[in-house]
Write a protein that binds this DNA or RNA. Structure first.
Lengths: 337, 337
DNA sequence: CGAACTACTGAAAAGGTTTGCATACTGTCG
DNA sequence: CGACAGTATGCAAACCTTTTCAGTAGTTCG
């Protein structure tokens, strides 16, 4: 069926060990022999059997990635970063989608734990206790979540949020609403906390927390009417998708953005450039987050003595587009209702 | 380190073989023994080593998926479908992103071929000869591409295109442009061919092929000015992203959609509901395509005697939104330039 | 009561690679 | 010229599971 090291050894006239060494330890074998073995192997299309290798070395050259939703552009970007960096390092990536279900994260991690050298867990929804337990069972790196001493690529939400709030304050906004994401989401907690930090620094700023919504367009649509009632002149959304929902519903309710209400998203996904009006958003280097996660994990895999590192990726940038503008002299119109 | 079958056997007071059988062949072991082994295994947190199992069975319980671009919503949807179906069947998924580079597809397939039981190759850009060669080396299923006798989930482009063209014809459009995707793309070829079939059936319809563009928003932006010059009253884009680019550039050039030009996309990605104007698009059941691909592959893996099947997923639907409207009595205005 | 079955269980081989250890050989230095 | 250092290669064990084959004990039937 498949060509094995034994076949190559026979053809090249050497032992199996020499074949193995010729491929893995170039300097432990005579140059002439090495060349002959390599040629033979290439000629026969020999590829080492990863299962056999993994059985003895205990390494799989594969890493796992668990994300809540592959169709969410946020996670698609992280996945892309993870995938490209892993490939460059000679690793395959087993991807799993938890469908935003915390209990699935645990199952998925256990299922893949034996097939991978480590797992990148992105934005897990599960409680700290579960994550901590998982970290005992397998090599784990977190992205967009902090939990005890587990190595993590953390997004410094405060920095991005500060920029966004500074922008809105400069435009004269004093009553600003926040449309939150899932209550169990670490980034939602972090973002809300960041907003409150900023609010505490500006006594005349009124921050209105509108509660938790689905992190999808539908969540924004659901929240839009609350925004209107709150009489806030600007709204920060949990992410761009939610902001899109807000834009859509506000338009259908007859409110103009940014004339009546300014809208700010977070993530700066590619699509935010193309809505009407285009969306002001806080950009996060998502692909880099994925890359950083892999780097952290592989450093850990290669040298288990490496102390757990926390990596904070700081390169935010607020991208101002059409959805934010100066506050109106008079309060927002109640165009309808 | 890790708990093996030997450990479980020792604790449960049975042989390794019995442990193996208790887990895999429930009826070949006495109920009492079975219960004892299972309890012990669970208690000790035993999980069979996939490498050792794979080494002897030759199966990995893992499938591969290769897509051109994970960040493209089209492929994100397919990936989601593949992932969920595979998981339900007890398989892991190794995902790889070829970055739209045909030569990488080949490398990726070879790299993962030994680690998976089969590969789902989605919208490959590589030439038929390469695909055919790959199919000889590993179990292969195609999605959104046809190539010889290789099992494939094919999208019947003609059906969707016909619906879209029927819609435009009904609105009075007689000069319709097509903004194509990559020349090497099978679906681009299929879509263009479908358009020509429809055009052949309507002698008074003037089809203008504007050539190949990047399958991204940037491609649409690049093509928009050609659309204007062509004096077509409607344009069909290779996919929704390209259509978004068209909407954006047309607006900036001062053209109104659909008053001056109607725009139709293909794929009906979630975002097409949220652009302004929202996009009329031909929907493809992408998640189902992914699922169907896995079904095809697993049927094949489980029973290699299964004759290669071609699966055509037909459930298209044209979703009409705001970007298409009746043709103007007078030719499109030349708002600028 | 013995023989033939059945139903379970255990021993052992196989699967393909890596790697520690032993061996054979080449060349060098005393 | 002999011994030794060093290098290149082969042998064999180990990794952990599955699966075939054989064996044991218990049961049933003649």
């Amino acid at each position: 069926m498949s060509v094995t090291a034994r076949d190559v050894a026979r053809v090249a006239g050497v032992s199996i060990s020499t074949v193995s060494r010729a491929l893995a330890k170039p300097d432990e074998v005579a140059p002439a022999t090495r060349a002959r073995v390599l040629d033979t192997a290439r000629g026969m299309g020999y590829l080492p059997n990863p299962a056999a290798r993994g059985l003895i070395t205990g390494r799989t050259s594969t890493i796992g990635l668990i994300v809540p939703d592959l169709e969410n552009p946020f996670f698609a970007a992280v996945t892309k970063g993870v995938q490209s960096r892993a490939r460059a390092a000679g690793y395959c990536v087993i991807v799993a989608d938890s469908d935003e279900d915390p209990s699935q994260e645990e199952d998925l991690a256990r299922t893949m734990s034996k097939r991978v050298d480590g797992i990148v867990l992105c934005s897990p929804r599960a409680p700290d206790s579960v994550i901590a337990q998982l970290a005992l069972e397998c090599r784990l790196v977190l992205v967009n979540r902090a939990c005890g001493d587990i190595p993590a690529v953390a997004i410094n939400n405060l920095m991005g949020i500060s920029q966004a709030m500074g922008h809105l304050l400069a435009l004269g906004h004093r009553k600003i609403a926040y449309v939150g994401g899932p209550a169990t989401s670490w980034s939602n907690t972090a973002r809300l906390a960041s907003l409150q930090v900023v609010a505490a620094e500006h006594p005349n700023l009124d921050l209105v927390d509108l509660g938790s919504f689905q992190p999808y367009v539908s969540g924004g649509i659901a929240a839009a009417d609350l925004v209107i009632v709150s009489e806030a002149t600007a709204v920060v959304a949990y992410n761009d998708l939610v902001a899109f929902g807000l834009l859509d519903r506000l338009r259908h309710r007859g409110f103009r953005v940014p004339d009546d209400i300014s809208v700010v998203g977070i993530d700066n996904i590619p699509m935010s450039e193309l809505t009407f009006p285009s969306l002001t958003s806080v950009g996060i280097p998502l692909v880099n987050c994925g890359r950083a996660g892999v780097d952290l994990l592989l450093g850990f895999v290669r040298d288990p003595s490496t102390p757990p590192t926390h990596h904070h990726d700081l390169s935010f940038r607020l991208v101002v587009r059409e959805s934010t503008g100066p506050v109106r002299a008079s309060p927002a119109l109640h165009a309808t209702a």
